[in-house]
């Protein structure tokens, strides 16, 4: 399998002097094309920091991160931005949408930065994605006029606009009730099934159980990894039991 992201011996610290603490303490990780992975671990274990480091949103102290063979640490701010905009997609716990824009405008915003001339095409694609995730009728709504689950779907549409190679999700279902959470996970599974790699950071065993590889982190290190067969929509409870057993074993 072709690797899209490789992290080698990543060290990342916060604080200064005596307060200095390694949040990532020599982490090495690889994500393959089309893979569906998740990272679990207690609060403060470094899960989100790992994700932010791998996507180039946060710098690292030492080690190396490559995306499709390009070393992110040597890229300029604009080049990193270009990669994030055209090759990656992001879904966060809180729907990170801009207040001034309606739902449709929020979805097309990153794509419009480069291709304003193709506005009609971009808008058409956004509408198709909105229809796919079930929010077609909300395009003119303000972000304060829709539910959390609908906002998260809009966030997913935005992430998919550039046909990314990978989608990063930091607790994408963390702020949702179980019904909405399941719907979002269904969408992410569908996206993954279509070939896009997905990396999720989560506390939720039910979310992790949908993925095929789970990395467990503690104190800035990946302490264990667990592999599951590709999720086909069945036996979710069995998968969950396995994940929870592993969590207990790891003391999470």
């Amino acid at each position: 399998m072709k690797k899209i992201i490789m992290g080698e011996n990543i060290v990342k610290s916060f604080g200064e002097g005596d307060e200095k603490r390694n949040v990532l303490d020599g982490v090495s990780v690889e994500i393959n094309e089309g893979e569906f992975v998740s990272v679990m671990g207690p609060s403060g274990s470094g899960k989100s920091t790992l994700m932010f480091s791998l996507c180039g949103m946060d710098g690292i102290d030492s080690g190396k991160v490559t995306f499709s063979g390009r070393d992110l640490s040597v890229l300029k701010e604009q080049e990193l931005a270009d990669i994030r905009r055209t090759k990656m997609g992001f879904v966060f716990q809180q729907p990170t949408l801009l207040k001034n824009l309606n739902i449709l405008d929020n979805i097309i915003l990153p794509s419009m930065r480069d291709n304003r001339k193709n506005a009609a095409k971009i808008t058409k694609k956004a509408r198709a994605l909105m229809k796919k995730v079930g929010i077609a009728e909300l395009e003119k709504r303000d972000i304060t006029q829709v539910s959390g689950g609908q906002l998260q779907r809009a966030g997913i549409c935005r992430a998919l606009m550039s046909n990314p190679k990978i989608i990063f999700g930091d607790e994408p279902t963390g702020a949702l009730n179980s019904k909405y959470a399941q719907e979002i996970m269904d969408i992410l599974s569908e996206i993954n099934a279509e070939g896009t790699a997905v990396m999720l950071v989560t506390h939720d065993a039910k979310v992790a159980a949908r993925t095929e590889r789970i990395m467990f982190m503690r104190d800035g290190k990946i302490v264990s990894e667990m592999r599951l067969p590709k999720f086909n929509g069945t036996h979710i409870d069995d998968r969950m039991i396995k994940v929870m057993a592993k969590m207990r074993e790891m003391g999470i």
Binding site: M57, E77, Q78, A81, D82, I83, R84, R85, T86, F90, T96, L97, L98, K99, L109, P110, R113, R158
Partner: peptide, 15 residues
């Protein structure tokens, strides 16, 4: 917050 969001989704400092 909005600036951070836009940067996350690929807007540069110049943008």
């Amino acid at each position: 917050y909005s600036i951070a969001v836009m940067k996350a989704f690929g807007f540069t400092n110049l943008d």
